[in-house]
Design a protein around this nucleic acid. Structure first.
Length: 214
DNA sequence: TATTGATCATAT
DNA sequence: ATATGATCAATA
C-alpha cells in the first residue's frame, strides 16, 4: 500500500520511464501497458502464471480504467478458462475464486482524448469481497462452469452473468481450444476468459470509497 | 452509447 | 501454445 500510494498522481509516461517501459503513441498498441508498468513499479512477480501477482501476500493486482466520473470504462479480465477442467472444479478451488480473494485495484485515467502517456495513476484500493459479493460471483461462476462442463460452451454469450461473464480471450479469431461437447467428447472452440462487468467493479469501488470516508 | 465479441503486446 | 497484461471496435 505504501508503494501504491507512492505512484499515485504520476502519469503512465513518468512511471513507465522509471521502470523502463516505453508507452506507445497508438492506443491500439498500448493494450495492457498500464498493467505492465504498475506491476513493475509495485514489485509484482510480473510472470504470466495462474497465481496472484503478489504471491506471498495472495494479492492480485489490477489496473482499472476510470472515466471522468470515476466509473470503470471497461470490464476487468480475471482469468483464462481451462474449458476441459471446468467439469472437475468447484467454486472454492477455482482460479477465479483464488484471484479475487484479494485484489489491489489501481485506477488509471481512461479518457481516450488523453494520450496514454499523459494518463495519471490514482489512489489504490484493496478489495476483499464481502459475503454478498462472493455470493454473486459464485452464482454466475457455477452457472457458467456447468454450461461449459455439460458441453454447452457455444451457447455462452457475454449476456450471461450478472457480475461475472465469459467472453472470448484470444490473439485472433482463428484460435481454438479443446472443450467437452454434449457427449463428453472433444470439440474445438474459441479460447475464453472470465471478466468482471464494469457495473460490478464500479459498485465495488463505490463501496470502498464510502468505507474510506467513514 | 453501452455492451459484446475481437484483438494487440509480452513472457514463458 | 497458452498464460499474463488489457482495450479496441463492431453491434445491439
Amino acid at each position: 500500500m505504501q508503494r501504491a500510494s507512492g505512484v499515485a498522481g504520476l502519469t503512465l509516461g513518468e512511471l513507465g520511464a522509471e521502470v523502463g517501459i516505453e508507452v506507445p503513441d497508438e492506443g491500439v498498441r498500448g493494450k495492457g501497458v498500464a498493467g505492465q508498468i504498475v506491476e513493475r513499479a509495485l514489485g509484482a512477480s510480473a510472470a504470466s502464471r495462474a497465481e496472484p501477482d503478489f504471491v506471498g501476500l495472495g494479492i492480485e493486482l489490477k489496473t482499472i480504467p476510470l472515466d471522468a466520473r470515476g466509473k470503470p470504462k471497461e470490464s476487468t479480465f480475471v482469468a483464462s478458462i481451462s474449458l476441459s477442467a471446468m467439469a472437475d472444479t468447484d467454486w472454492e478451488h477455482s482460479v477465479v475464486f483464488k484471484k479475487l480473494s484479494k485484489v489491489l485495484f489501481v485506477p488509471v485515467e481512461a479518457a481516450s482524448s488523453t494520450p496514454l502517456r499523459e494518463r495519471r495513476v490514482g489512489r489504490a484500493y484493496l478489495w476483499v469481497p464481502t459475503g454478498t459479493e462472493l455470493g454473486l460471483l459464485r452464482t454466475d461462476w457455477e452457472r457458467l462452469a456447468e454450461m461449459i462442463g455439460h458441453g454447452d460452451v457455444e451457447q455462452i454469450t457475454g449476456h450471461l452473468g450478472q457480475v461475472l461473464q465469459v467472453r472470448p480471450k484470444a490473439a485472433s479469431g482463428s484460435a481454438r481450444r479443446r472443450a467437452p461437447d454434449e457427449e463428453g467428447a472433444v470439440q474445438w472452440t474459441m479460447p475464453r476468459g472470465f471478466y468482471l462487468r464494469p457495473s460490478f467493479t464500479g459498485a465495488v469501488l463505490a463501496r470502498l470509497r464510502r468505507e474510506e470516508n467513514n
